[in-house]
């Protein structure tokens, strides 16, 4: 393989061209990350500088992992990420399949379907907070009609459902676009061949279309898990604020609460480091397997 080499007239020019990207990465990614790494092995000093920060080694992590609240948060995160991923991908796939079958108004529908993605997470949160508000919301009113007493301020299950719905709603657009593109890249003749081969509509979907979508599905699964774990702060902050009784206090939200509300920066930093490790693992999985999972 031949690589193309460019010769610069000035030896500093290539560095100057690289500089903006490198500076942004250093200032906004490497520096905060290393700060978190450092803080995670220190015990926070007091606010008046009387007692300086002390080095505590793994102690922050040890306390954290022994804390029932942290384990509870881990469990909540797991349920939340799983719920959000399944709900948003399931609904998106359903919509994509339906839009893909349309002929005329496909583009119009696609445009409408993308709109939720442009809504800021906090706004989306407030929106759902209104809809599900136990006092003034429309859904609790409807649910009461069928005998369900909705109250996400008291019921952990209701609160979890609320944030899953709010977080999934926003992600449906994104998943929808990828699924639709995936569906459109499947040659129509394959579906026709399967139809001639005696496969009904459902059978065609599960034996031909769905397997051929698997690279897209796998990619979206990783993206959605990452989204649910890290990008849903706004949604939670605007709706449940981690409550009731920590039921929706997922890992990212707990980082914020412990660090900025409870001012326990050591523990907060340790939690950030654990989150960082999770992101790294997810990214590695995505890069390692996404190419291999492509089965054609």
């Amino acid at each position: 393989m031949q690589t193309k080499r460019t010769t610069f007239s000035n030896r500093w020019l290539p560095y100057a061209l690289l500089a903006p990207q490198v500076i942004v990465t250093l200032v906004f990614f490497i520096w905060p990350a290393s700060q978190a790494l450092i803080q995670s092995v220190y015990r926070q000093g007091d606010a008046f500088g009387v007692r300086p920060p002390t080095f505590v080694g793994w102690r922050n992590f040890e306390t954290l992992l022994a804390e029932p609240q942290y384990l509870g948060s881990l469990k909540a995160t797991f349920i939340f990420a799983l719920g959000t991923t399944i709900l948003s991908m399931g609904v998106a796939l359903l919509f994509a399949v339906m839009v893909n079958r349309m002929i005329r108004s496909r583009d119009a529908y696609t445009t409408f379907m993308v709109w939720p993605y442009a809504v800021a997470p906090a706004i989306a949160g407030v929106l759902w907070w209104f809809i599900f508000n136990p006092n003034i919301g429309i859904l609790p009113y409807v649910l009461e009609g069928i005998g369900y007493d909705w109250n996400h301020r008291a019921s952990s299950t209701d609160a979890m459902l609320l944030i899953i719905i709010a977080a999934a709603w926003k992600q449906i657009s994104y998943n929808f676009l990828f699924f639709l593109a995936g569906l459109q890249s499947i040659p129509h003749s394959l579906i026709e061949a399967a139809a001639i081969d005696g496969a009904g509509r459902m059978k065609r979907f599960w034996t031909i279309v769905f397997p051929l979508l698997s690279p897209v599905t796998f990619f979206l699964m990783v993206v959605n898990i990452v989204y649910a774990m890290f990008d849903t702060f706004g949604v939670i902050h605007a709706t449940t604020e981690g409550g009731p009784s920590q039921a929706t206090n997922i890992l990212v939200y707990k980082v914020f609460r412990d660090g900025f509300v409870n001012l326990n920066t050591g523990s907060s930093a340790a939690q950030s480091v654990i989150l960082m490790a999770i992101v790294i693992v997810l990214t590695v999985i995505q890069f390692r397997y996404i190419e291999r999972r492509v089965n054609y």
Partner: peptide
Amino acid sequence: DIAMVFQNYALYPH
């Protein structure tokens, strides 16, 4: 009760 051979073969790639 017919079978068809397509121009692009339409083999199931997976």
